[in-house]
């Protein structure tokens, strides 16, 4: 399936542009660990508790003065309206690539290493360095450069020593889109600020098309409610929604909040090809809601081998940003009559 390329094939990127990109990369790499910032607050129990609740983690260890290592990024997030410092190497490199035509961004991977558990009361400091710029590469998304930054978290001690407690390699692809119609791409500022949501948080977000017939559903998910259209004339429930009742024809409609309980009617383990902004595999379920309608959503916190038809599930909500909250599903038990 590969296309042979001869030695005389056209370069992927204009040599002059490539030279400029790599020169800028060297300059920014030479800045070393920059963009130094202190965490807004010391490690503290209320923030840990909120994080545990959001993650569905009830490990008692983290109620006794220790913080989960994987929330290290939380401590140094910019906060609402926060901006990356002017000397931030990652943003500087992103800007160079944007200005040279590599306008699109896709988070590819993120590796965190933890030296130890953090303790309540410790004050963190973070630095960011540009680790590498590799390219040009031809990818399915387009031609671009892989940009890797390294964030390092420290705790400064009274004796003047700085103890490294965690680090993170964060890699994005900055590319020239190949497709005529481009996905909406989150700006890198938002990507980095959101990175604590997971390794692929710098992803672009595929936003659902909405109109006045369907926006109530998305307003519902944002409010933590799974809304199902209900005909005000005959009471029939319907999903997906639409302007005219398929049962009685009435145009007068409202909605009800579903219980969020259902069972798996069918499912898919999506392994290939890539889904922009998502890690694979993705488990997708077609859920028979207790209310009698069906819905598609991602099944989270479940292994592909665990999912089966008939398995009971419960809705949850994954907030992506102010404009989008997706309904997702969690298993609540084994399928009726199953071996599990």
């Amino acid at each position: 399936m590969s296309h042979p390329t001869s030695a005389t094939a056209e370069p992927l990127v204009d040599p002059a542009v490539h030279e400029q990109v790599m020169a800028e990369a060297e300059r920014i790499k030479a800045l070393g660990e920059a963009s130094e910032r202190l965490a807004r607050d010391p490690v503290n129990q209320p923030t840990i508790s909120n994080w545990l609740e959001a993650m569905g983690n009830d490990n008692p260890r983290f109620r006794q003065g220790e913080a989960p290592p994987s929330m290290v990024q939380v401590w140094t997030m910019y906060g609402l309206g926060g901006k990356a410092p002017a000397d931030d190497p990652l943003h500087a490199m992103m800007n160079v690539l944007t200005d040279t035509g590599f306008t699109a961004v896709l988070g590819t991977n993120c590796e965190q290493s933890y030296e130890r558990y953090l303790r309540v009361g410790e004050q963190l400091r973070v630095t960011t360095a540009l680790d590498s710029v590799v390219g040009p590469k031809k990818t399915a998304m387009g031609v671009g450069y892989f940009v890797t930054s390294r964030s390092t978290w420290y705790v400064d001690h009274e004796d003047g020593s700085a103890e490294q407690v965690a680090s993170m390699l964060f890699r994005v692809l900055k590319f020239v889109p190949t497709r005529a119609v481009q996905p909406p791409v989150d700006p890198p500022e938002a990507s980095v600020a959101d990175a604590a949501d997971g390794p692929d948080a710098s992803r672009f977000v595929l936003r659902p098309m909405k109109n006045r017939d369907t926006e109530f559903f998305w307003e519902g998910t944002a409010a933590g409610e799974l809304r199902v259209q209900r005909c005000n004339a005959c009471g029939v429930l319907r999903h997906p929604p639409g302007p005219a009742c398929p049962s009685c024809g009435a145009l007068d409609r409202g909605h009800v909040a579903a219980s969020g309980r259902g069972t798996v009617f069918s499912y898919v383990v999506h392994r290939h090809p890539p889904v922009p902004g998502r890690e694979l595999p993705i488990l997708l379920v077609l859920v028979d809601l207790d209310e009698g309608v069906r819905m598609v959503g991602e099944l989270v916190d479940t292994e592909p081998t665990e999912v089966e038809i008939g398995m009971p599930v419960q809705v949850d909500f994954r907030r992506v940003d102010d404009d989008l909250t997706l309904p997702v599903w969690r298993r609540t038990g084994p399928a009726e009559g199953s071996r599990a």
Binding site: L206, P208, M209, D213, T214, H270, L284, V296, G297, P327
Partner: peptide, 27 residues
Amino acid sequence: QFSVAAATQVNTNGLDNAWTYPMGLGT
């Protein structure tokens, strides 16, 4: 491939795809 274009059509097909594509079901 995963078709972002199919999910962002400005018509009822795009609206229909709102119930699957953003959830990750789109190939």
